[in-house]
């Protein structure tokens, strides 16, 4: 019964840097054997991690450190190049806010589409529609096209759908970035509820205060490597120390890219 919610063993993931990618047949014919100019971005390197059931795990790190890629590999969106991801139970992803909605369709249609994709039946969506709209505070806008929504409204809609799935594990990426204070309070309340219900949460955020107050454990990801695991205070202090020394020493923008 004590299967962990998530288990990653030696997971690596790399991308070809887009501008160097060949997208035309002609380029293949012209230089079929030439592999120069292909930059590889090692987004995740040999990550091993076990997330026990019921844990609130936060992932922190600089922009581009691999946090979001880690979440997408957990969600089954990206297939890892190496290693194994083992998932026990139903996952609900809240990743890349607002992206993936169809802006030409109404909130109602988008709830239908997203609800279906995360596994709900038509009936289940109909039953939850009011709750989703109420949580997102969008009752009045249910039949408006999303192109007229603000980024905060899109965020609320996406999060409201994600938490309505009967999940065991919730993956949350930057839910606090564009919401207002009221919505943040609401999110915090759902965190408490989910924790009380024994749900597992993997939380990616730059909001260190929230990370500090909710997490059971924090992991630090730097240049695709899991560099530290431990209690929130300890890891956040370590992270802040790293950021300060890094900033005074060197620009870190192009780190993490290796040429093949």
């Amino acid at each position: 019964m004590d299967e962990p919610a998530l288990e990653l063993t030696g997971v690596s993931k790399s991308f070809l840097v887009p501008h160097a990618r060949r997208s035309r047949l002609k380029e293949y014919f012209a230089h079929p054997l030439d592999s120069r100019g292909h930059d590889r971005n090692d987004a995740l390197r040999d990550i091993s991690l076990t997330v026990p059931r019921g844990e609130f795990l936060s992932v922190i790190g600089r922009n581009g450190s691999g946090k979001s890629t880690l979440l997408k590999v957990m969600a089954g969106i990206y297939r890892p190049d190496a290693g194994t991801v083992r998932v026990n139970g139903v996952l609900s992803p809240f990743i890349e806010l607002g992206v993936g909605f169809n802006m030409e369709l109404s909130a109602r249609d988008n709830i239908q589409i997203n609800g279906t994709l995360v596994g709900l039946t038509r009936r289940e969506i109909a039953d939850r529609l009011d709750e989703i709209l109420e949580f997102a505070e969008l009752e009045r806008f249910v039949d408006q096209h999303l192109k007229n929504f603000s980024s905060g409204m899109l965020l609320r809609l996406g999060y409201a759908i994600a938490v309505q799935v009967p999940f065991d594990t919730l993956l949350v990426d930057e839910v606090l970035s564009v919401g207002d204070v009221d919505f943040q309070e609401k999110c915090f309340a759902t965190f408490e509820q989910m924790r009380a219900a024994g749900k597992t949460i993997v939380f990616v955020s730059h909001g260190l205060d929230a990370v500090r107050s909710f997490s059971d454990r924090v992991i630090l990801v730097e240049q695709g490597v899991l560099t530290a695991t431990g209690p929130p205070d300890e890891i956040i202090d370590l992270y802040l120390a790293h950021v300060q020394t890094r900033e005074s020493a060197e620009p870190a923008v192009y780190e993490g890219r290796a040429s093949l």
Binding site: V11, K13, G76, R86, Q112, I113, T116
Partner: peptide, 25 residues
Amino acid sequence: RSGTYVVRRGPLAEQLAYRLRIVSV
């Protein structure tokens, strides 16, 4: 080379119904 993603899937009929719901929506 390729890693693996292991998740417990539901029965075949359920998976098929899930796909049909997506196609329909």
